[in-house]
């Protein structure tokens, strides 16, 4: 586990990237870490390029934004074009339901959206992706993410999100 993680989640507005970043940042805070979540967005609430960044650190977070990402999630072709070619070979997660499949040692394509609709709600695709990314990188404990989800959601919605999280965890564990 590193002292500091920088995460980029990119796609289009309405894909839940901001809430995904918030859950991750809240999980880090539950563990007593520092976290900053930022976003860039256009004037449309839905659609258009959207990016959510999270920085997690055991120390003070001085610069609030990602300088060298440790992991990327891409949910649109445009986002994938931007980050799949990063030379440092950091893990890039992407959704094979939405994007064409690519080959590369650092590229992790999973059908997040398809799995989410099987679970009962396509809206949980980002949580499945989060589960996968966190399992791969050890940024935070899965238990902290579950706790953050339980704080944010209640009842059936919380249950479904926990299920989605575990689905993401299994994706990576079964592939290793």
């Amino acid at each position: 586990m590193k002292d500091k993680y920088e995460i980029i989640m990119a796609g289009s507005g309405g894909q839940g990237l901001v809430s995904c970043g918030i859950i991750l940042a809240e999980a880090a805070i539950i563990e007593g870490q520092n976290a900053v979540q930022t976003q860039s967005y256009g004037i449309a609430s839905r659609g258009g390029f959207s990016k959510s960044e999270v920085v997690i650190s055991r120390n003070e977070i001085i610069f609030q934004q990602v300088q060298e990402p440790d992991v990327v999630l891409a949910l649109t072709e445009q986002a994938m074009e931007m980050y799949a070619t990063i030379e440092s070979k950091i893990p890039v997660f992407y959704d094979t339901t939405l994007l064409k499949t690519r080959v590369g040692d650092n590229l992790y394509g999973y059908p997040f959206t398809e799995l989410a609709s099987k679970l009962g709600h396509v809206g949980t695709a980002n949580i499945i992706a989060l589960g996968a990314m966190v399992t791969k990188t050890d940024m935070v404990q899965i238990e902290s993410l579950a706790q953050a989800l339980k704080r944010r959601f209640s009842g059936k919605v919380a249950e479904m999100n926990i299920k989605a999280l575990n689905t993401g965890v299994k994706l990576v564990k079964n592939n290793n």
Partner: peptide, 9 residues
């Protein structure tokens, strides 16, 4: 806008 929209502990 940066500080207004960022979320932080």
């Amino acid at each position: 806008e940066i500080v207004a929209h960022m979320r932080e502990n």
